[in-house]
């Protein structure tokens, strides 16, 4: 049952991206930016946690989850360390993802060539 919800909500979120592509012709960079900002806002107004408890990976795997952890990190760090937390918290919380993406991209770029279509 849990998996069904993950599939449905994850699918719906992605379909929303496709709707944006079809209706506004925006490119993938802008779509990613939109969804990250949606995530930040959802977390800022405390809506992300209840959504996440329900949809799990369905909302965490889309880039919305990335935006939410940025905001969550910043908010949490502000509460524990004060003002400096606003600057350190966001990247700290998402460091794993960013570092992984950069590291894997770098390694594969050393090994592989781009192929024509």
């Amino acid at each position: 049952m849990q998996y069904l919800w993950v599939f449905l909500i994850g699918g719906l979120v992605c379909m929303l991206g496709e709707v944006l592509i079809i209706t506004t012709k925006i490119t993938s960079a802008r779509i990613l930016v939109c969804f990250v900002l949606i995530g930040v806002v959802l977390q800022a107004v405390n809506l992300f946690e209840p959504l996440c408890a329900f949809a799990k990976a369905g909302i965490n795997v889309p880039i919305i989850g990335f935006g939410a952890s940025l905001a969550k990190g910043a908010i949490g760090a502000v509460k524990s360390y004060g003002l400096i937390g606003a600057f350190t918290g966001g990247l700290q919380a998402t460091a794993g993802g960013i570092a992984a993406a950069i590291a894997f991209a770098f390694i594969f770029s050393l090994i592989c060539k781009s192929k024509t279509k």
């Binding site: 592509i21 012709k25 490119t27 993938s28 781009s114 192929k115 024509t116 279509k117």
Partner: peptide, 20 residues
Amino acid sequence: HFSTAERQFRFPLELGNQRV
């Protein structure tokens, strides 16, 4: 050449986007 034009005018070849 498809691949040289693509990288200069559009996106990297391996980027997963759709053509309009």
